[in-house]
Design a protein around this nucleic acid. Structure first.
Length: 889
RNA sequence: GGGCGGCUAGCUCAGUUGGGAGAGCAUCGGCCUUACAAGCCGAGGGUCACAGGUUCAAGCCCUGUGCCGCCCA
């Protein structure tokens, strides 16, 4: 037994060794290397760089499967194809990892110092940072791995500096003291979209703020009473008559000695609570803006770690949450507490460490994004960038419409250090791409670089061009920029996608990608977010081990319908593993009959009109499937691609075609046999190519066993449309034969005829032509329904003692010699009759309606008329059958 | 409070110019029929959330309501 036979005779598909093998082969052959041939269209994707700290989760699996499907498709279509891989340096996350490592040694980053710490991070990256890249390789991701990039690479870092300096010089980057989202644990500022808002059951404290003249009080409500120590005013609506008189009086702030003013601001909601709002400019974003409008002073009452500072008076030194309790107790004791309500509200948490965010003022670097955002919006409006699914356009526009300046400085060490220096001599601020040696203003050499680093997303925003060698004008940029499509999860539309648009358009003068496909988040089968704490996480690596990578990829593809969240059920993966196995076994069968053929046996498929019906039919169905798959891939309808393949391969190719041609394959008739071999091989080749982008391993494995010397499937050509294979006549005829076979099988099953029992059946049809057509398939029909005798007629007498089945205008009889269960048969006919009558009622309703006849298009009316005729025929046959049965009884 | 999405068979979901309600899984019955029991054959199952409207015709378009989810304030 040869190795090939041994392998192909194995009954079940053993994916583990197969996957290993092809991963190696593809790499060895350089199948995924991006060539830059001239005169060939390009297709390029840059990977959404996973965090260097990451391990593959099911979201990555989905994201990269979809990318790989497209990339493999376009590569097979012959495009210059580039899928550029890499990781980002994940500033905060990575720093946290290394700090934790230090903590086990009882050290902090300050103990080791900045340079040594960064060195440690690099070392960590060398040792552990490659994990997710290897996992992506296992997934079969056909990236050009020689081009792997990292946001902290030298080239990318140079791009970051260049961009920073340009934007600064254009006045689009500035430094200022503004309110930011502060994480008191990470000790850094965060961008707005790095804050997760979680609905929290909290308390709303209603506090009495006495008028300064003692004539009364106003009640304000807050969820964060500790911030009252930083209040510098109370705001009310200018038209709120309840408070007009307070303008001159002011408020005596409880627990302090301070008197604060009342200001009148239209943004105050008169309906909320008492219509009075405490204003804490240093610890609340809205209050910050109110304070700006009314020149209220800022008063910071906490330090960076969320501990109350000296401004908090006797509360100094307390943690913010301890302080809250004490404040509430004190207010209560002194009679300032009106009431406490249960209150649901969204609380901001650090997206990295889940600590409650403290909005606070701080000196930070910002990008003035408005002008950049406007250009991005313009590109989308003009259709230079298309977003799929369409439902995201609204969200995109509304978010971009009221976008705020982007805080890009982070108070951490791991990342791109801001290229700005302050001169110790003259305080000049120097922003340069190259480290300056001396101050251009005073010539002094006492220069101090900013200690902050840039937001990781700042470098990610440059990814589509920084990875291709910008600011050099490289061949890669010329060939592959703008990229063809960006595939990512909707939750980073703004973190990343929008920012790439801004930066790409600004610096490349061209959009970074033509299409954006946003896929859903993968949830568990109940629709819950997967999380370690809930314990409902599906680990893709485990799935791949258990069911095979192809099964997982196929499942994810089948679930990727636009505009819907993905509820992943492991049972479904198992189901699709069965499909992979089905393909394997179908191929195994096919190879038993074609492995010794010359590859040119497929030439018979070039002249389909000369072939027997079943071949014409399967070729036509193959052509239709090719059409569907191509259209699905072109329009990002991944689920349609999967279901078209599934439906065709299992329920047409396997269930019908393979069964149908067995007789020919085992036949002594050389011509019939070679036709069957040829078409079988041609269809199998097409199927393997179609399915390869989704299930690369099993398809490549089978492909390698096909007769003849072949290039790798991964670099073979994708099936072209085959109008010459399309054959509606063959499809119609085949459907009639399949209907007859199904009818006979139905009768056998309903009548409890043992599958091995040889019985006879008779078919009555409308005319002699049809009789002749059907008789031509007597053998096939008998074979597939295990008949000993099959007859066709258009005028024979209808047997009395027979079970019947009606398919369109064809009646099928299976004589059962006293074995007919009259009651059961009548029941079956009755049910059938009800259905037909219900349909008939609908159809009659339409045809009896003059307006329908007048307004509906001709073809629609004709169709309904035809339907009525069919229903009448069927009804008549049912009635007849009932009469026969009743006569028997 | 604002915005978006969803509600179709027991479950998970398709349903793209409005004109036949579908798939997979699950269920039930029968089969080791020489590729596959990870299989084959057959069957049952739905007031398309609810109420109106437009139309000759609505799962699909419009309005409102309910429930669920997400985002934003």
């Amino acid at each position: 037994m040869t190795i090939k036979e041994e392998k192909l005779l194995s009954k079940g598909y053993d994916f583990s060794e197969v996957e290993e093998k092809w991963l190696d082969r593809w790499q060895e052959e350089g199948s995924f290397r991006a060539e830059m041939e001239s005169g060939v269209p390009s297709f390029s994707i840059v990977i959404p760089p996973p965090n260097v700290t990451g391990v593959l989760h099911v979201g990555h699996a989905l994201n990269n499967t979809l990318q790989d499907v497209l990339v493999r498709y376009h590569r097979m279509k012959g495009a210059n194809t580039l899928w550029l891989p890499g990781t980002d340096h994940a500033g905060i996350a990575t720093q946290n990892v290394v700090e934790r490592q230090l903590a086990t040694e009882g050290k902090t980053r300050d103990d080791v110092g900045r340079d040594a710490f960064i060195e440690k991070v690099w070392r960590w990256r060398e040792e552990k940072g490659g994990t997710i890249i290897n996992q992506l390789k296992k997934l079969g991701a056909s990236c050009d791995w020689d081009r792997e990039r990292f946001t902290m690479d030298e080239g990318l870092s140079r791009a970051v500096r260049q961009v920073f300096v340009s934007l600064y010089k254009e006045g689009l980057i500035y430094k200022g003291d503004y309110i930011v989202n502060w994480c008191p644990r990470c000790l850094t500022a965060l961008a707005d979209d790095e804050v997760d808002h979680e609905d929290t059951r909290g308390k709303l404290y209603h506090i009495r703020y006495p008028y300064a003249d003692g004539s009364g009080h106003v009640v304000v409500a807050t969820t964060r009473p500790e911030t009252m120590l930083g209040d510098t005013g109370v705001a009310v609506h200018p038209e709120d008559e309840r408070y007009n008189h307070l303008a001159e009086i002011g408020i005596k702030l409880p627990l302090t000695e301070r008197t604060i003013p009342v200001v009148f601001d239209e943004h105050v909601d008169r309906e909320f609570g008492t219509g009075a709002l405490k204003v804490t400019p240093s610890h609340d974003r809205n209050d910050y803006e109110i304070a700006l409008r009314h020149s209220l002073p800022h008063l910071k009452v906490m330090n960076d770690k969320g501990i109350m500072n000296e401004e908090a008076g006797e509360y100094a030194g307390l943690d913010r949450f301890q302080c809250r309790e004490k404040i509430v107790a004190d207010l209560d004791r002194l009679g300032f507490l009106e009431k406490i309500e249960e209150y649901d509200h969204a609380v901001g948490h650090c997206y990295r460490c889940k600590t409650v965010i403290e909005p606070t003022t701080s000196l930070q670097w910002f990008v003035a994004v408005k002008p950049l955002a406007d250009k991005a919006v313009g590109a989308v409006r003009e259709g230079r960038i298309n977003i799929y699914p369409k439902s995201w356009y609204n969200t995109f526009y509304s978010w971009m419409g009221d976008i705020r300046d982007w805080c890009i400085s982070r108070q951490i060490w791991w990342g791109h250090r801001i290229p700005a220096w302050t001169c110790g001599g003259c305080r000049e601020l120097i922003v340069e791409a190259e480290d300056p040696q001396s101050c251009p203003n005073c010539g002094g050499s006492d220069l101090h670089q900013e200690t902050d680093v840039l937001d990781t997303w700042f470098s990610s925003a440059l990814w589509p061009f920084s990875t291709m060698g910008w600011p050099e004008n490289t061949r890669e940029l010329k060939t592959f920029y703008p990229t063809s499509v960006l595939i990512t999860s909707f939750d980073i539309l703004f973190f990343w996608v929008a920012r790439m648009m801004m930066m790409g358009i600004h610096f490349m003068d061209e959009v970074p990608f033509k299409d954006v496909y946003l896929h859903a988040l993968v949830r568990d089968k109940h629709g819950k977010k997967m999380s370690k704490s809930t314990g409902n996480v599906i680990d893709p690596l485990e799935v791949m081990r258990e069911y095979g990578t192809d099964a997982m990829r196929f499942t994810l593809t089948a679930f990727a319908a636009q505009g819907r969240e993905i509820k992943l059920d492991e049972d479904r993966i198992e189901g699709y593993r069965h499909f992979i196995n089905k393909i394997w076994n179908a191929a195994r069968f096919a190879l038993m009959h074609v492995s010794d053929c010359q590859p040119d046996v497929t030439a018979v498929a070039e002249k389909p009109r000369e072939l027997p019906l079943a071949h014409r039919w399967i070729l036509s169905r193959t052509a239709a499937t090719v059409r569907e798959v191509r259209a699905g891939l072109d329009e990002y309808r991944f689920n349609d691609v999967a279901s078209a393949c599934y439906q065709f391969i299992w329920h047409e190719f396997c269930d019908w075609y393979l069964e149908w041609i067995k007789a020919d394959l085992f036949s002594g008739d050389k011509v019939l046999k070679e036709q069957a071999q040829g078409v079988l091989l041609a269809v199998l080749e097409t199927v393997l190519k179609l399915i390869h982008p989704v299930t690369p391993f099993v398809s490549e494995e089978i492909w390698s066993a096909l007769p003849g010397a072949r290039p790798l499937l991964a670099t073979s050509s994708f099936p072209e449309l085959r109008p010459d294979w399309e054959d509606e006549d063959a499809v119609g005829r085949m459907e009639m034969l399949m209907g007859i076979i199904t009818g006979i099988r139905n009768i056998r099953s309903e009548a409890d005829v043992h599958p091995s029992a040889r019985i006879s059946a008779m078919v009555l049809c409308g005319d002699q032509q049809t009789v002749e057509f059907i008789s031509g398939f007597e053998a096939a029909i008998s074979d597939m329904t295990r008949l000993e005798r099959f007859t066709v007629s258009h005028e024979a007498e209808k047997p009395a003692d027979a079970a019947t089945y009606i398919f369109k205008d064809i009646e099928i009889f299976v004589p059962l010699k006293g074995l007919v269960d009259v009651e059961a048969e009548l029941g079956k006919l009755e049910r059938e009759k009800k259905k037909v009558e219900a349909k008939m009622k609908q159809v009659d309703g339409k045809l009896g309606n003059d307006k329908f006849l007048a307004n509906a298009p001709g073809p629609v009316v004709d169709k309904v008329r035809q339907e009525k005729a069919d229903l009448e025929t069927k009804l008549a046959k049912i009635t007849e059958a009932e009469e026969r049965l009743n006569n028997m009884a």
